[in-house]
Amino acid sequence: MIWDSWGAFWEMGGSGPFVWGSYGVTTVLIVAELIMLRTRRVSSTRKLNRLMRAGHGRKLPEVQGS
């Protein structure tokens, strides 16, 4: 085992703020991306459903490629 205790693990030989600052921000960004993706999926599905029910689905001015 590399670490004598959990205290030593969190301290990272005095580099704790740099190491955990790196891993922490990365974790936050990944979680944020997943939440944003979910939010977009839910809101987009809701909006498209509303448009469809309102019967505007086919009238929207969009050109489709083939």
């Binding site: 977009r40 929207l60 489709q64």
Partner: peptide, 24 residues
Amino acid sequence: RVRVLILERERHADWVRGELARLG
């Protein structure tokens, strides 16, 4: 993410309308 983009882009297609109804 591409699944969401596909639904948004192809929203006029019948299969998307079916899928949206199912998701709804």
